[in-house]
Design a protein around this nucleic acid. Structure first.
Lengths: 193, 193
DNA sequence: ACGGGCATGTAAGCGGTTACATGATTCG
DNA sequence: CGAATCATGTAACCGCTTACATGCCCGT
């Protein structure tokens, strides 16, 4: 059901086409909620049938611009004030980390090195995006500072995971050097760039 | 496909029944990869047909204990060394945060307060779990320290999100007090318990 | 003129959830 | 003896992905 309300939420910030919305998912929302274009177009048609949105303009290439209706606005608001129903954060890389013991030491080291690098560049990308939003590249309407809150979460999570991956890499090396678990663990915060 | 390999990975740590595996998903793996019991039983039957696992014991109440085969071991290892295919972090709460602008100030404050509380208790729960693993409640085989790596990631992510939610709460209050964005933002790390 | 991006869809299939269904065993 | 938990499954349905399909418009 989340995609449905995510689309309503995006349209609450202003009219947009399916293509626009798909791009917004690809660029920012995609990390926390992936959505493919067939799913988006399908859901938009359903939302239109339910009178939560309506086509308010048509452009070139069959472009249909949707706007949210008052009923739609009420529906998103209700969703936003209900308790969160799904608390998981489905992530393949973290799932894999659970099976680290099936890899050789070398594979472990390589794997965590790749992971930390990935998280570092992702954090960097979102910092840049945040910078652009801060500089007013997207205007200064309410939805922009709202988006920056989510971006901030992404930055913090990626930072945390980058440090985690480095810690995990050290961990496996330590264990290969001497036989048993030596644990400095959390609290060894490194300085940031 | 991930569930398939997750089951193989768990069975690589030792024989288990579908019920055992379901409990493991519920207790620890569930946050990073939710799995319901019908899905697990279905997948176990498929894995058995594919000769990646085999029933090696039967207990009371129709309990079937599965063990991984050499082919299955090879399959998990291949999966673990391939590049991660899905990098998303599907999370409903973070998706919602993108639509903060649709809430009243009061709703925003309440929402972020509830979120930070949730993340604090989750971090605490995983710290306790980690403590129990550290104290050897689950033995000291390789898979235990491997599991602790994932648990460590969960702790760090929950800590990061707890601090983010508090920052976000402050953020919205600041903006209601004076008109414009004042941003101390990241770098304002608070001391930890 | 043509290539790339804009723009919207359909169809098949898979992964996953929810509800339904059933029964055995253990423990108090 | 009854309740909780162990234990495995089926069926219907939904959400989502991948591949296929089509055509228009704009810039070079």
């Amino acid at each position: 059901m989340s995609l449905r309300y995510a689309l309503l939420g995006l349209l609450a910030a202003g009219p947009a086409s399916g293509y626009d919305l798909a791009r917004r998912f690809r660029d920012v929302l995609g990390i926390v909620w992936p959505a493919s274009h067939p799913q988006i177009y399908l859901e938009l048609n359903r939302l239109a049938s339910a009178k939560y949105i309506a086509v308010t303009d048509e452009g070139p290439r069959g472009r249909k611009e949707y706007s949210i209706t008052p009923e739609g606005q009420e529906a998103v608001h209700t969703w936003l004030t209900e308790p969160v129903s799904d608390r998981s954060f489905r992530n393949e890389a973290l799932l894999r980390s659970f099976f680290t013991f099936l890899l050789t030491r070398q594979e472990q080291t390589e794997s965590f090195a790749r992971e930390s690098e990935y998280y570092r560049t992702m954090a960097e990308n979102y910092r840049k995006l945040d910078q652009r939003k801060a500089e007013g590249e997207f205007g200064d309407e309410a939805w922009v500072s709202s988006a920056r809150i989510t971006i901030e979460a992404a930055i913090r999570v990626f930072d945390a995971l980058a440090e985690w991956a480095e810690w995990a890499g050290e961990q496996t090396n330590e264990e290969s050097a001497k036989g048993s678990r030596s644990s400095s663990r959390r609290g060894t915060k490194r300085k940031r760039s």
